[in-house]
Amino acid sequence: MTGAPVRAAYDGVVACVPTTVPYRRFSINTAHWWIGRALHDLTRAAGLKPAEIDGLILSSFTLGADSAVGVTQHLGLSPRWLDHVPLGGASGVVGLRRAARAVQAGDARFVACVAADTNHVDSFRRTLSTFSRFAQDAVYPYGSGGANGSFALITKNYMNKYGATREDFGKICVAQRHNALAIPFAMMKKPLTLDEYMSARPIADPLHLFDCVMPCAGAEAFLVCRESDAKALGLRPVRLLATIERHNAFAEDTVQERGGWAMDIDELWQMAGVTPDKIDLVQTYDDYPVIVMMQFEDLGFCKKGEGPDFVRSHTFTADGSFPHNTSGGQLSTGQAGAAGGHLGITEAMRQLTDTPIGHRVQDADLAIVSGFGMINYDRGLSSGAAVLARAS
């Protein structure tokens, strides 16, 4: 622990109305359209008028010159609380965390947390070329294909130091593909065997095809409010027990082998009032399987360096010994830009309210969701995690 005091719990604050706009491989619609569609579906499912959404938190890579405030004008919203969280895969947890505090403080009553991105033929190249100053100056001009090279470095370093094998990473990918087959809009429609994973074409050594996400268009959203308001609307909420976020952690590591979770994990479990062995399902950010293995360690399910053995000793399907990324995650359902950081939250919410789109985890009462984002050469700069619980 860092020695910081454990903050007060999020008493009375809940998340509800998990909303997904079904993914498409390519879309001629703008990110604004996907955001508007998500807000439309969210308010309709919640029984609210758009004018009743007095808080908005937004994440997107493909808004062009716009940010959250520009979107309020495009969509005719007038929130009294607004935030734009450009943290990629960490945006979902960070957005949930900030929205919950806004509701708790009385700054807003109903906060819509939305992430959406479009994907047309040239979207991915444009995103890569302007992703960060580092990308503009030191990577993209030399022909880098984006995150693949960075995660190849991280993966190879982890394999060399801790003995992970491609078969270990493949086990994660195969299980997630099984989970995704029950999701109608998943990008990956066919079962994946370990042999197929191992023989897939190389991308950036040691990464092969099925280690990499499929970019697509889509949106994810949810509502944060007080439990009394959710129940008055007849909604099925989940309780927020604890959250953490951390940025630029362990900068001294030559190549990233741990994330910010490791710095604050004791605080998370203490705030939640539970221990890792009580968790029923885990939703990690999964742009590459090495980051999944890293999260198993840094979230406290095993010690640093024990990730490979942990993977070998568990199954990760929804009905397995360690239900994980039960929607298929980004590796098989797809990475809808910034919405990938919200996918685990909406999936956990559905599981905890017995409304999954795909396979159901039986008797699920507690979930942990983690986020990871903003890769910059040899590390991701942002991380977060949240513990969610079934409401009584």
Rank of each mutant, 00 (worst) to 15 (best):
S382Y: 13
G3K: 14
T43N: 06
G218I: 04
F110H: 14
V290N: 02
R379A: 10
K278D: 08
H84G: 12
I53D: 02
Y197L: 05
R177N: 04
M271V: 10
I28G: 07
D365T: 08
L381W: 03
L82D: 08
W261T: 07
F61L: 03
T326V: 14
E252I: 04
T333A: 13
H208Y: 01
Q136Y: 07
Y377P: 01
V238P: 10
M214S: 13
A182S: 15
I183M: 14
D211L: 02
R239W: 07
S60V: 06
G371P: 02
D365P: 00
S228K: 14
G89A: 04
F301W: 12
N119F: 03
D168T: 09
L87Y: 13
V369Y: 00
G380E: 07
K190R: 15
A51H: 12
Y142S: 06
K278Q: 14
G344F: 01
C225D: 08
S383G: 14
H314W: 02
G329W: 04
R166F: 07
R390E: 08
V114A: 05
I345D: 04
G92A: 05
T333E: 03
A318F: 00
R97Q: 13
N157T: 04
S67V: 12
L268W: 09
D253F: 03
F372M: 11
A46T: 05
Q176G: 00
K156V: 03
V17Q: 04
R360A: 15
M349N: 06
S327L: 01
R125K: 07
S332K: 06
G76Y: 11
T193P: 06
T155F: 07
G305E: 13
K303E: 15
T72C: 15
F310T: 12
R350T: 01
L153H: 03
L56F: 05
G260C: 13
Q335L: 09
R44Y: 07
D54P: 11
R125M: 05
D319N: 11
I345H: 08
K189S: 07
A186P: 00
G89L: 03
A249Q: 12
N248V: 01
A385P: 06
L343W: 01
K189I: 08
L331C: 01
V292T: 13
A8T: 08
D168C: 09
I35K: 03
D107H: 13
V85G: 00
M374H: 12
T284C: 14
G163D: 12
G337Q: 00
Q330L: 15
I154W: 06
L223S: 08
L281P: 02
G76C: 12
L209A: 05
Q256A: 14
G234C: 05
L181R: 13
C113F: 07
L388R: 10
G259D: 14
P18C: 04
E196L: 03
M293W: 06
I291F: 00
G92D: 03
G320Q: 11
R44N: 03
G55C: 11
C212L: 00
V93E: 05
F316G: 02
Q330C: 04
E245Q: 15
V387Q: 10
A217K: 01
H178C: 09
G47N: 10
G218R: 07
S150D: 02
D298M: 10
R350M: 09
L241R: 15
G36R: 01
G307F: 02
L209R: 01
F322R: 06
T2M: 15
H324F: 11
A364V: 06
A249D: 11
P86E: 10
H74V: 15
N376I: 15
A391H: 14
V85C: 10
R133D: 15
